[in-house]
């Protein structure tokens, strides 16, 4: 199918796109949304992807993002997410030994995505997110925080 291309934002810089969006009364939740990679959670699940892994990651990610929003930290962060690692480790929950997945939280500050630094989120905040994820998401028993800047690391893990 041969289609001609029409690009109504060709004249605008990114911050101008947001200003135009605002004047069009577009929902702030869309305009202030963090950048999100095209392949989505597919590249935040390290290794092979299954529907079950997507479900686990969605739960953990939603706890992290909603906590950022409710703590008023969301707009100070350029991009945030959770990585589901292909690593299992031993834990103990109640009287039972567990052997479940580890995740890494990632939150970076940046102005253009070309360079980025990890966000110095408050310890109390990280402690609460870690606790919430481990208690509520079955399949995760360990939470880590990624403290690498870009460069040399990248924002995403894959």
């Amino acid at each position: 199918m041969k289609l001609k291309v029409v690009e109504p934002l060709r004249a605008l810089f990114k911050d101008e796109v947001r200003r135009v969006g605002k004047s069009l009364n577009i929902d702030g939740a869309i305009l202030e949304r963090h950048p999100f990679p095209g392949p989505g959670l597919g590249i935040r699940i390290l290794g092979d992807v299954t529907a079950e892994k997507v479900r686990i990651l969605q739960e953990a990610d939603s706890i992290f993002i909603n906590s950022l929003k409710s703590s008023g930290l969301y707009n100070d962060v350029w991009q945030a997410g959770v990585m589901l690692l292909p690593v299992q480790s031993v834990g103990v929950m109640g009287d039972e030994r567990t052997y479940e997945n580890a995740v890494a939280l990632r939150a970076v500050s940046s102005t253009d995505g070309m360079t980025a630094d990890w966000c110095h989120l408050p310890y109390e905040f990280l402690a609460k997110v870690s606790n919430d994820i481990i208690n509520r998401v079955k399949g995760i028993n360990r939470v880590t925080y990624d403290i690498s800047s870009k460069p040399p690391a990248t924002i995403e893990w894959e």
């Binding site: 289609l3 690009e7 796109v17 135009v20 069009l24 577009i26 305009l31 949304r33």
Partner: peptide, 26 residues
Amino acid sequence: KLGNDKVILGLSGGVDSSVAAVLLHK
């Protein structure tokens, strides 16, 4: 430019495609 033509646009939920869609819709 578009007159009565039909336009297809892929939305991602992101800022750029959403603003482009609303402009075209208008």
